[in-house]
């Protein structure tokens, strides 16, 4: 009985989502091996070896696995799968891209977006944008699982696993990487941030969004989120979107500014530890789930908030 965790990484380190998935993988009760795929992945493999619960790190250094393209990486996983009872990945875009391909090649029904592990074959997962929680039991011999990472904490350091080179299928060159536009930012990543400040359509323009939200975010060391309405209106980039169709987050503090609280948005942030809502409409649904509500115009409040944070506590 062994679990294989498929790491999502940038070559230098496993990402936060993978470290949370490691916590989930250890809950399955079996030793965990971590697969790190891609050339120039030495640092990421070394990083994987330092976590408690990791028994073995498998490093597949073929350049075919660079950028974690689904076709070659799925072929690799399938060629390694004979030794494993469970294949686990974070529900990052890489995990969501690769794992169903693996599942179909193994003739297995994947369990997506797992939020709780009840036993080695029984899991909880949200359906209908989190409006219902289902408990499902898998009858497949190999479990293929993606993890809703906001539901698990980051694994602890303290391991010293060995790193072993592996090789496997590389697929048939069906796809190739062309390029990417990834926003470079000094701010924390949305899915791993302790504090998130989010803006809605009430911001009114991309300029106002920048002008009002950014200074407070900088003061708090917060990541920036946005509602779908704000993203669709062009006030904020796509990858800031929090919600059913965007990112699911669970920070210690979530500050919703000018966000009414559509079901789609709540599905992405309602597991936050503390929720603050700032909205001038006192009937906005966001107040029904907020721990602290402030009925006021965000354009007045956010500059005041920035000033208040400067005062000594």
């Amino acid at each position: 009985m062994t679990t294989l965790l498929i790491a999502d990484h940038d070559g230098s380190a496993l990402n936060d989502a993978t470290l949370r998935t490691l916590s989930a993988a250890t809950e399955l009760g079996a030793p965990v091996h971590v697969l790190v795929a891609g050339s120039n992945s030495d640092a990421a493999a070394a990083h994987a070896a330092t976590f408690t619960g990791v028994e073995n790190v498998l490093q597949a250094s073929d350049a075919a696995y660079d950028h974690l393209l689904a076709e070659p990486v799925a072929a690799l996983i399938v060629s390694l799968t004979g030794d494993y009872d469970a294949l686990v990945a974070p529900n990052t875009t890489n995990g969501k891209n690769i794992m169903p391909r693996v599942a179909a090649l193994l003739d297995v029904m994947q369990i997506s977006d797992v939020t709780a592990i009840i036993s080695a074959d029984t899991f909880e997962r949200p359906i209908y944008a989190g409006n219902a929680i289902q408990t499902v039991q898998s009858t497949d011999a190999t479990k293929v699982i993606t993890i809703r990472t906001a539901a698990f904490s980051v694994a602890e350091e303290g391991g010293s696993a060995s790193i072993n080179a592996v090789s496997g299928d590389t697929g048939e060159g069906l796809s190739s990487y062309v390029g990417e536009e990834v926003a470079k930012s000094e701010r924390p990543e949305l899915t791993s941030a302790k504090i998130i400040i989010s803006g809605g359509r009430a911001l009114g323009s991309a300029e106002k969004f920048q002008e009002v939200i950014l200074p407070v975010a900088d003061k708090l060391g917060a990541a920036i989120g946005a509602s779908r309405a704000a993203v669709d209106a062009g006030y904020a980039p796509n990858d800031w979107q929090v919600g059913q169709t965007g990112k699911v987050v669970a920070p210690d503090l979530y500050i919703a500014c000018g966000i009414s609280g559509a079901i789609q948005h709540l599905a992405g942030m309602k597991d936050s530890k503390v929720i603050v809502a700032i909205n001038k409409d006192e009937d906005a649904p966001i107040f029904q789930i907020a721990d602290y509500g402030l009925v006021a115009d965000l354009f007045d409040i956010l500059p005041q908030l920035e000033a208040e944070l400067d005062k000594p506590s």
């Binding site: 359906i127 929680i133 289902q134 039991q137 789930i289």
Partner: peptide
Amino acid sequence: RLTVLKTIEPTGRNAGVKVAD
């Protein structure tokens, strides 16, 4: 392939307090 054992409502959050400023 997956047996649905049960379906439940998510645990709700209650509205907290309104602050003045």
